[in-house]
Design a protein around this nucleic acid. Structure first.
Lengths: 358, 358
DNA sequence: GAATCATTTGAATCTTTAC
DNA sequence: GGTAAAGATTCAAATGATT
């Protein structure tokens, strides 16, 4: 079976997900309904307050229904996730704690909880509580043992070369981005594209398949299309589906795929230190220098090992030994003499070789 | 029975709470074990060791054991709470979702979840996830029908006459405030007094009784005494108790809490260039132009870096490289094409984002 | 003594590949 | 499956050392 890529499946998300092949999706992003147990359900039809044991039973039954629903869709999502896939859920204090506990119970492995700080939240008009100015997202891998995609360098770049933190400050979806029909908002809880931009940039690769079980008006699909990812949406409401289709059709994908690729040291090809010798960038007998004052010295041997008066081994091993450190990256630790008083890390030689590979 | 006010009860918190009269306490503040379940040792890039939390009190065999423990102490706490009392719990993603779900199951009524944004969190040294830069507190009333204390105006005053939001930006407990014994921290997870200050100012009145079931080194007691509230602590570890007693003895209550309200002024928020992309003000693949004749050209990548035929990096770095200059302010150097022959500096896009923050 | 630079540290579920 | 080796990786703030 081929996946219904870049389409919206009309119907209940559990049935829809169950119709897809197992281990076929790279990412699930879910914005499920918030807990329905609020307000009126605490009142009887005659408006008297529910009290005592009845109260607890009622409430338990409400939470139980929400829990059962949550468990069901999270189970279905887990089946279709690839083993190295991941899942995001967004919610508020009404539902996110139940969602989080069930995620853990099902074996998902939490990677972060992310706080979306709203720059422009709705104030608390009655002054009864703190302004509810954030929502919470949970990001988790399929299990504690599985791998997952995290474009660390992209996130760092997006944040002016500082590690991206677990709190994200972004505005609500308003203005031209907010879908309207007949002057009213099409969907009550449309999420901003900036939020999905960061989610997809962080945890997917170009070409990945992203499934959204509660597609709504298609923010996930719109951003996925823009960023060169494939999407699958599940949605029951025909009006939302129509709005999402129209919206996504207008999205222009980024034309140049090269601007989408994450650049990470981890994904670059490995270069053995021996290659540096084979290409004559260094020669057997050359000296390498380590330490802040370049006072540690080692001699390069023809087989690519280093030797000092007492140590012998790889650039990493000898680097660790001369520093008496548990570990060492020899590429950045060792320097060669490039001029009278100029030392350069041997990593530049590796870069030279890597450049030739392109 | 009279309450053991302003004392530390030595022993298990559940037994201690069960020994107190029902409906006798105005507030419970709890910093329970987080159930971190850390793996092996973790080294910083400089190879120094991170002191993790591996205390016996944070070890649980599985989620079921942690849940049973959580349910037990939350039940005991609920019995001793006055009907118009409230409870706070702090935690991280390791435990807070389980705590939150159990709170709801027991009939507590959530008022807010509060995010403590750390100004100086520990980074993610291995680049595997987002920097875990926050913890979560849940504030709840005893039930949906009960009243609770919220000093709305105090909170507004604390926040420059703006409603206090659900995200609080506060530094970790370090420096002189951090209790040390023999050069090492007395308690691995001592909370900052600023956090408790805000909690107690928000949700208690002078003279109220505040119980902390996991008293540790007594931050709750210290701030309670300072603010003219009464405290009751429960703690098992004699060393923590001794440190807390000594600490609290030194606290001088303040006559007028308003003198403590000095709150750091917010500085102009830093806007990473990546935000411009996330918000769609520029798009991946767009061209930027530098130089007086706009003859330097760079392409915007999806992660917020720029790329030319030979250079790659942040707006500042690439700006410097194309000019062969030591440094460059990319915000003013780079321009985007706003019309047929019109170029505008990308700084106007930053201004646009800043305006939304106010 | 002031200024500058180097070191330390904080609730952390913290690697990947080859053999 | 396990073990060993390669090699990638940190931010803010306080404290201590040096000039």
């Amino acid at each position: 079976m081929t996946l219904p890529l870049n389409t919206i499946l009309s119907g209940d998300c559990i049935a829809m997900m169950d119709s897809l092949p197992a281990k076929s999706v790279d990412l699930v992003f879910a914005d499920p309904p918030y807990n329905l147990q609020l307000g009126g359900e605490l009142l009887r039809p005659n408006n008297s307050k529910v009290e005592g044991v009845d109260e607890e039973w009622d409430r338990f039954s409400d939470f139980a229904a929400y829990d059962a629903f949550t468990r069901a869709w999270l189970k279905s999502a887990r089946r279709i996730l690839k083993d190295d896939g991941a899942l995001w859920v967004i919610g508020s204090y009404h539902n996110i704690f139940r969602v989080g506990a069930i995620l853990q119970d099902l074996g998902y492995w939490m990677l972060n909880d992310i706080v979306w700080r709203k720059t422009n939240p709705m104030p608390n008009f009655k002054g009864t509580r703190f302004t509810n100015a954030h929502e919470t997202m949970i990001w988790c891998a399929k299990s504690a043992e599985t791998r997952y995609t995290f474009n660390y360098d992209s996130m760092k770049a997006l944040n002016d070369d500082l590690q991206m933190r677990s709190d994200w400050t972004l505005p609500l979806c308003t203005g031209g981005e907010r879908l309207k029909s007949g002057g009213k908002k099409t969907h009550p809880t449309q999420k901003p594209e900036s939020l999905l931009y960061r989610v997809l940039m962080a945890s997917t690769k170009p070409g990945d398949v992203v499934l959204d079980p509660f597609f709504g008006t298609g923010t996930t699909g719109a951003v996925a299309k823009k960023l060169g990812r494939n999407f699958i949406g599940c949605e029951r409401d025909p009006e939302y589906i129509a709005a999402a289709k129209e919206r996504i059709a207008k999205v222009i994908p980024v034309a140049d795929p090269s601007v989408l690729m994450a650049i990470s040291k981890r994904s670059e090809p490995r270069i053995p230190f021996g290659s540096v010798l084979e290409r004559g960038l260094l020669n057997p007998g050359d000296l390498l220098f380590g330490g802040t004052r370049h006072d540690k010295v080692a001699k390069v041997r023809a087989d690519g090992t280093l030797i000092t008066d007492i140590h012998r081994g790889s650039i990493h091993k000898v680097g660790a030994l001369v520093q008496n450190a548990p570990a060492c990256n020899g590429w950045t630790y060792w320097h060669f003499q490039a001029g009278h008083d100029e030392f350069m890390p041997i990593d530049v030689l590796r870069q030279k070789i890597r450049a030739e590979l392109h």
